[in-house]
Amino acid sequence: MTEPAISVTGVDRVFGKGRKQVVALTDVDLTVADGEFVALIGPSGCGKSTLLRLVADLDTATSGEIKVFGKGARQARLDQDYGIAFQQAGLLPWRTVAGNIELPLKIHGAAPALRKARVAELLELVGLTDFAKNHPDQLSGGMQQRVAIARALAESPRLLLMDEPFGALDEITRERMQNELVRICAETGAAVLFVTHSIPEAVFLSDRVVVMSPRPGRITGIVDVRADGLADHHDRTERARDQEGFFRAVAEVRALLHGGASTSSAGVEPAGVGVEER
């Protein structure tokens, strides 16, 4: 039995002290299985980024436990068990596209020959082979984002953490990138925790969609997209966007976002159901 990629138990995150206290997350439980694609969705300020940052060990939980592949979040970070992509591409403007993708490998002391081969592979994967020697300021937003994704994939992590990576893209580029991400995930078999504001994006990409609500940030429900009849996330094709199950899942997520499980119609699992344990 493999360890889950992420296991979050009873996590709270409180910012500040006294009057100005902000409860960003309260009592969050979440498990992401190895190879599973889970999207986090919810209104602005509900703590999606905070949760992702806790998993990445860029921030520390006030209480509760976070395990990544059975290890503490800090150990997982030190062991480089995850790759990460932020909402801003966050490329280093003074490095070429190849240099940016190579960065994590270089920092971790990979041999030059190995780095070169890997970068070529990744460039091919994100379709930017012709732009290897360009600098980020010469690329479009979508291309920059693909470089960031290639960089996140550089060390073949078994877990990808992505915070609204397509947030700044137009609808057309966005759908294209989604298709590419599905393909990439199928090729790498990585588990993904994916923050987004877009319901269709969440449904199209994931196995499960985790719906959160603010003040205090918490999980209000989880929609298992596969239960609605969509294929496993890495077997998904563009056609999934037109399938009946897709619209059903979209409706379920929307119902959860507007008013929570109590008013939702049949087919929506309230929080806890569909989650491994409570």
Binding site: L58, R77, I84, F86, G90, L92, L103, I107, H108
Partner: peptide, 22 residues
């Protein structure tokens, strides 16, 4: 930039690597 700083943290980069790379 905060993104670059966090990227270096995510890579568990040492202080000298941070200075050199970012």
């Amino acid at each position: 930039k905060a993104v670059h700083r966090e990227l270096m943290t995510a890579y568990a980069a040492g202080p000298l690597q941070r200075i050199r790379s970012v």
